[in-house]
Computed example of a mutant assay.
Amino acid sequence: MTGPARFDWDVEAIQQGFIDPLYELFDQKTERWRPTLAALLIEAGGRAPERYPAMLAAVELQHLALLMLERLRNGRNIAESTTPESRLPLPVLVTVAYTAKQMASTLVIRHEGALATGTRSWLAYQVSRALYEASAGMAVDIQFAAKEASPRERWHLRLLAPLTFRLPVDCALAALDRHEAPEARTLREAASHASIAYRLAMDVIGRHDRARGEPAQALHELPIHWSPLAPRPDEAPSVAWRRTVESGLVADVLSHARRERQEAREALATAEGPLAATLRVFIEATVDMRLAEAEEVSHAE
């Protein structure tokens, strides 16, 4: 009706400006807890995880997008807002992260044919809601950073939990068609508490690594912009770390992490069945490992 299109897809540019950055970030990390957890739960429920490739990819895409955004700073201009190790211009970086986030919902709703239509819609809603909550949670997190609020005031961490371990639980419940089962609420609650404990532990570990001039292990998991653990303007990371340890702020963060871990333990205490057992083992193998490591580095100096 209107004539030929005025543009063609620049496949080479898409490869270099979108696909390659995603795979580069994917290859930089070795821990892929989200698709692993979803696959373990699906298998525990008696189904083959490989039947749901789009869903598993969607969970990891969310994580990669968040890691990309973690490279940004709250600067006054583009130069100040991009970290030195970032090779992509800021507008490109933001576009890639935004597109990857949106692709996650699209993968579920349009390409996960193994799910029933109603279940697909439910899971796409959970993915979209997790995106919304995470965006709000990160915005509030930055505001808390400016105010240096205490860990006990960090209610917004509930908004950041879904993208860690709760969304993989949702994926498994959808694959098993048990998202409306009585056990679903218990599994999702336990995963949320475990997510917060894990993120707090990773933040402590990441701050410690940066203080020692080492590559932060927190690259594997998005750390939180915790102001009590962050350096002040023109303050060396090693000095900031010593200050936070001596002031007891690190201990306060770890205390909060232990409380959340206990909440997850209590949520699963009365749960039965293979899904609860699998989630329990996963939390013990991941969250407890990181908590122990965070406790160790908190006493290192």
Score class of each variant (00 low, 15 high):
residue 1 M to G: 15
residue 3 G to T: 13
residue 13 A to F: 03
residue 14 I to S: 03
residue 14 I to V: 11
residue 16 Q to K: 13
residue 21 P to E: 03
residue 22 L to R: 06
residue 25 L to K: 00
residue 27 D to H: 15
residue 31 E to T: 14
residue 35 P to A: 05
residue 35 P to H: 02
residue 42 I to A: 05
residue 51 R to Q: 01
residue 52 Y to G: 02
residue 52 Y to T: 07
residue 52 Y to C: 01
residue 52 Y to H: 01
residue 55 M to G: 08
residue 59 V to P: 06
residue 60 E to N: 12
residue 62 Q to M: 15
residue 64 L to P: 01
residue 66 L to C: 05
residue 66 L to I: 11
residue 70 E to Q: 09
residue 76 R to Q: 07
residue 78 I to N: 13
residue 84 P to Y: 03
residue 87 R to L: 08
residue 88 L to Y: 07
residue 91 P to T: 10
residue 92 V to Q: 10
residue 92 V to S: 10
residue 93 L to A: 10
residue 94 V to C: 06
residue 99 T to D: 06
residue 103 M to P: 12
residue 105 S to W: 04
residue 106 T to H: 05
residue 109 I to S: 12
residue 115 L to T: 04
residue 116 A to F: 03
residue 116 A to I: 06
residue 117 T to A: 14
residue 118 G to W: 09
residue 124 A to T: 04
residue 125 Y to Q: 11
residue 126 Q to I: 06
residue 126 Q to G: 02
residue 129 R to K: 09
residue 134 A to Y: 08
residue 141 D to M: 07
residue 141 D to A: 11
residue 142 I to L: 14
residue 148 E to S: 14
residue 149 A to P: 08
residue 150 S to D: 01
residue 153 E to A: 05
residue 154 R to Q: 13
residue 155 W to G: 12
residue 158 R to D: 00
residue 161 A to V: 11
residue 162 P to H: 09
residue 163 L to F: 01
residue 164 T to N: 12
residue 169 V to R: 06
residue 170 D to P: 05
residue 173 L to I: 02
residue 173 L to G: 04
residue 176 L to P: 10
residue 177 D to S: 14
residue 178 R to E: 14
residue 180 E to I: 04
residue 183 E to F: 04
residue 184 A to I: 14
residue 187 L to E: 02
residue 191 A to Y: 00
residue 193 H to N: 03
residue 195 S to R: 00
residue 196 I to M: 14
residue 200 L to W: 10
residue 206 G to F: 15
residue 209 D to C: 13
residue 210 R to W: 08
residue 222 L to E: 00
residue 226 W to T: 03
residue 227 S to K: 08
residue 228 P to S: 09
residue 231 P to C: 06
residue 231 P to A: 10
residue 232 R to A: 15
residue 232 R to N: 13
residue 233 P to G: 11
residue 233 P to R: 10
residue 243 R to W: 06
residue 248 G to M: 03
residue 249 L to T: 09
residue 250 V to T: 02
residue 251 A to W: 06
residue 252 D to K: 12
residue 252 D to E: 15
residue 258 R to W: 13
residue 258 R to N: 13
residue 262 Q to D: 15
residue 263 E to S: 12
residue 265 R to L: 10
residue 265 R to V: 12
residue 268 L to R: 02
residue 274 P to C: 09
residue 277 A to H: 05
residue 279 L to T: 04
residue 281 V to C: 09
residue 282 F to P: 05
residue 283 I to W: 09
residue 286 T to M: 11
residue 297 V to F: 05
residue 298 S to W: 04
residue 298 S to L: 06
residue 299 H to Q: 15
residue 301 E to R: 09
residue 301 E to I: 09
residue 301 E to W: 02
